[in-house]
Simulated scan of single mutants.
Amino acid sequence: MPKRPVALTAGALLGMSALFATAVPAAADAQESFKGAPTPVAHRGASGYAPENTLAAVDKAAALGIRWVENDVQRTRDGKLVVIHDTTLDRTTDAEEVYPDRAPWNVGDFTAAEIAKLDAGSWFGKKYAGTKVPTLKQYLARVGKHDRKLLLELKEPGRYPGIEAQTLKELSNEGWLDGDHVDGKLIVQSFDAGAVANVHLLKPAVKTGFLGKPDVDDLGTYALFTDQINPSSSTLTKDYVDAVHAVRGAHGKPMQVLTWTVNDAKGARAAAKAGVDGIISNFPDVVRDALED
């Protein structure tokens, strides 16, 4: 697999803040964000209604009229990209039953063909029995079929050296790095600051997000390679959102804030009051309806 072009950690990035904190403060009236009320994002697809990170969850998000879908990407033992959240297969598939002698069932210990044999839907309900763990290629095709937009998370990229370049290549092969997509249909995010920096280095046109809540004093460093700061809703404050909006990100626009995971109307209204640009939810229709009310 290709090597990571840079080996940046969050600590190393923060250590460089004195040298590289060059982000330009944004005028308040120039702030750009998702238009109107905060945009609902379907977490792992509409995962409150269908098995997470499956094609069925994409279909449900589309049926609900939700424009943005979030997913998680990992790599199999034979180098294929698959869409699954946990680094192990046991919670959302029948891996323990099919492969009883292969604990702890790490995604990276199985080939794509082996994972394709698993049932990723029965745990959620009989209606979804036989649902499969999709490959990234299959997932991109389904998102594109519904004309949805994609918030793609690189899940624990440190486990999969070179996954940034590989994911970008797959996105390119499937037509997701053309002007239309990079201008408004694709964001790549991660909890790993180095991975986000690598994505920006490899494909500067791609919009990126960092999952977490860096100190306000460090936002200038993150702004060198990311366009969004995406913290947990449990840590969210209006002052912090305002601080993020006051800094221009990697593409010269005010950084945005998407928060996660908000699953009720009260939480959605609180996040909106804090000024976020997007709200990631298992029940994105609940978020949308709360904000419309």
Score class of each variant (00 low, 15 high):
W123H: 06
Q228W: 15
V133Q: 04
V188Q: 10
L89A: 13
L219C: 10
R44S: 02
R4P: 09
A193L: 12
T39A: 14
L171R: 01
L13P: 09
Q138Y: 03
E97I: 09
V133G: 01
D227Q: 08
S190E: 14
E170L: 14
D178L: 13
V69D: 01
L14M: 12
K185F: 00
V69W: 00
A23P: 11
A165V: 03
P204G: 07
H43F: 01
D59Y: 11
V58I: 14
I187R: 08
R269M: 14
D180Y: 12
K203L: 04
A274E: 10
V107M: 12
L171W: 06
L89T: 13
I280H: 11
P214M: 08
A10T: 14
A61S: 03
L14G: 04
A165W: 03
L150N: 05
T131L: 00
Y99I: 10
I279R: 05
A30C: 13
A290W: 06
S122M: 10
R142Q: 00
S122F: 00
L236S: 07
G184N: 10
T131M: 04
A50L: 04
E96S: 05
V216Q: 15
Q74M: 08
V276P: 09
D86S: 09
G184M: 05
P284A: 00
I115D: 00
K213I: 02
A197Y: 12
T131D: 03
S33E: 05
F210Q: 11
M16C: 09
E153R: 12
L81C: 07
L140M: 04
V262F: 01
A61V: 07
V143L: 00
K253C: 07
T259F: 01
G194R: 15
P157A: 02
D227A: 13
R248H: 14
G209R: 03
T259C: 09
S33F: 04
D183C: 13
N53I: 05
Y99C: 13
I279A: 08
T87K: 11
A28Y: 07
D72M: 10
F225H: 02
A243I: 14
P231G: 07
Y49P: 04
K137Q: 07
A63I: 13
D277E: 04
K117E: 08
S281I: 14
V24G: 03
G175K: 11
T92K: 14
K80E: 07
L219E: 04
D29A: 10
P2M: 05
K238A: 06
G108L: 14
A61R: 00
S281W: 06
Q74P: 15
Y139F: 09
E156I: 03
Y128C: 03
E96K: 15
N173C: 08
H146G: 00
S233W: 05
L171G: 03
L13Q: 09
A103S: 15
V107T: 01
A42Y: 02
F225K: 02
T235F: 06
S172T: 15
K145D: 01
A57H: 01
S190R: 12
E164K: 07
A195Q: 11
L14I: 10
Q31A: 11
D239H: 12
R67W: 01
F210I: 05
G252H: 13
W68F: 09
A141C: 12
K203P: 10
K137I: 14
Y128T: 01
V262K: 07
